[in-house]
Amino acid sequence: MANWIDLNADLGEGTGNDSAMMRYITSANIACGGHAGDETTMRQSIELALENNVAIGAHPGFEDKENFGRIPLELSSAEWRDQITRQLELFDGVARSTGAKIQYVKLHGAMANMTAADRNLANVAYEAVKSFRSNMMILTIANSHQGAAAKALGLENVEEAFADRAYTDEGLLASRSLAGAVLSQEKQVIEHITRLLSDAKVRTITGNVIGLNAKSICLHGDNEHAVALAKSINETVKSLGLDVKSFANKN
């Protein structure tokens, strides 16, 4: 069992939970204006991250605020690259104005799901990231095409698991449309996290147990119980004898 784990959360999305969530996480995936956010929210989230020694990650998604970036879009490779590059450049400008730097990239929503399932799309997305910065770290979905694509491009990647999501027998995230795909009870989430961190295993949506390795756990911050659950997860990690620290903070 590793002696540390990163806790990441999607922030800058207008939930109002950012400040409270920062107390319990170590990496912040900040919306870059595509699926959510603008220069003001980016600056607010970056400044909160700096105050709390939380790593700053860019969180680009499809430029579709109406659907929060959760609807798959049929785009050309050039359009994929343009959307990702545009958001990274905007976010980078805001970060630099605060004296900060983008430390990693994590894709959002449908963009993340599509690249997890399709190696060609993952290649396109991470080629855009590499063109923006050749040594950018990538936070990828465990057991997906994202990790393989990042490695092939020579980008350092760290794999994540999800605190509140069930997995298929193949080790992929179960579709939200399936009953039981989202773990809604704190007891379920804590059992899931404890098994993952203690044994590197998860119980699948069909009841089987499979192996799953991850160095980061994603906590969702977009519901009314998010902050309380983040506190419980943070405490659970520490009770297992693990340090809570970011994969991206080198100091």
Rank of each mutant, 00 (worst) to 15 (best):
M1T: 10
A2T: 10
I5L: 14
I5E: 06
N8H: 11
E13S: 02
E13T: 06
G14H: 10
D18C: 01
S27A: 09
A28E: 11
C32E: 08
C32I: 10
A36T: 05
G37A: 04
D38N: 10
T40P: 04
T40E: 15
S45Q: 00
A49Q: 03
A49N: 02
L50N: 06
L50S: 06
N52S: 13
A55P: 06
I56M: 09
G57L: 09
G61N: 04
G61R: 03
E63V: 07
D64H: 05
G69R: 06
P72L: 15
L75C: 11
L75A: 11
A78E: 15
A78P: 06
T85N: 08
T85K: 02
R86A: 12
Q87F: 04
G93W: 06
A95I: 04
S97F: 03
T98S: 15
T98R: 05
G99T: 06
A100N: 07
K101W: 10
K101S: 13
Q103D: 12
Y104G: 12
K106M: 14
A110C: 04
M111W: 07
A116N: 07
R119H: 12
N120H: 15
N120F: 10
L121N: 12
A125K: 03
A128Q: 15
S131L: 06
S131Y: 04
F132M: 08
F132K: 03
I138F: 08
T140R: 01
I141E: 07
G147D: 15
A148D: 14
A148I: 10
L155S: 02
E159Y: 05
E160T: 04
E160F: 01
A163K: 00
A163L: 02
A166M: 15
T168C: 02
T168L: 06
E170R: 05
E170Q: 12
G171S: 05
L173C: 11
L178G: 03
L178A: 09
A179P: 13
A179Q: 13
V182I: 10
Q185H: 04
K187V: 12
K187Y: 05
K187D: 14
I190L: 11
H192F: 13
L197C: 07
L197T: 07
R203S: 07
G207T: 08
N208Y: 09
C218I: 03
H220M: 12
G221F: 12
G221D: 15
H225T: 10
A226Q: 00
A228P: 02
A230I: 00
S232M: 10
N234F: 15
G241I: 05
G241Y: 02
N251Q: 13
